[in-house]
Amino acid sequence: MEKEKTKFLFNKSNYSLLIIGVVLNVGGFLLMIGGAAENLNDFNADELFSPVRLTVAPILILAGYAVIIYSIMKKPKSLKDTDSKEN
């Protein structure tokens, strides 16, 4: 009996891209945190509507999701080689 090798769907590059995407998402959400005034009667529009919170953080979050989707959809080279040999 020949022992078949188990082939994983993801390889090292897929996992590293997945981790990068998660870090981008966490960073984006962390940039969005805050803006609350210590006194409820105070309103600080500059802190609440800062460009980092309104522009940079959503871009990081969308980029993180794009990287995560790419890392899931990317086919490892080892699977590409075996598919081409089978055909």
Rank of each mutant, 00 (worst) to 15 (best):
M1R: 08
E2N: 00
E4P: 00
K5A: 06
K5R: 07
K7P: 00
F8E: 10
L9T: 07
F10H: 03
F10V: 01
K12T: 14
S13M: 06
S13K: 15
Y15F: 12
Y15I: 15
Y15D: 05
L18G: 11
L18A: 12
L18H: 09
L18T: 13
I19Q: 10
I20S: 08
I20Q: 03
G21Q: 08
G21C: 11
G21P: 03
V23C: 05
V23T: 11
L24Q: 08
L24W: 09
N25P: 01
V26P: 04
V26N: 02
G27P: 01
G28C: 13
F29S: 10
F29K: 11
L31C: 07
L31H: 02
L31I: 10
L31V: 05
I33Y: 11
A36E: 09
A36K: 10
A36T: 12
A37W: 09
A37H: 06
A37P: 04
E38L: 12
L40K: 11
N41K: 15
N41T: 15
D42W: 12
D42V: 11
D42I: 13
N44A: 03
N44T: 08
D46W: 13
E47W: 07
L48R: 01
L48N: 03
L48S: 04
S50F: 02
P51R: 02
P51C: 10
P51S: 09
V52E: 14
V52G: 06
R53D: 06
R53H: 08
R53L: 11
L54V: 12
L54F: 10
T55L: 15
T55C: 13
V56M: 11
A57K: 05
P58E: 04
I59G: 01
I61R: 05
I61W: 02
L62W: 04
G64T: 05
G64V: 04
Y65E: 03
Y65L: 14
A66P: 03
A66N: 03
V67E: 04
V67C: 04
V67S: 01
V67T: 12
I69P: 07
Y70T: 13
M73C: 12
M73D: 05
M73A: 14
M73G: 03
P76I: 02
L79W: 05
K80R: 07
K80S: 09
K80H: 02
K80P: 00
D81G: 00
T82S: 04
T82W: 01
S84Q: 11
S84T: 14
K85F: 05
E86W: 00
E86H: 00
N87K: 10
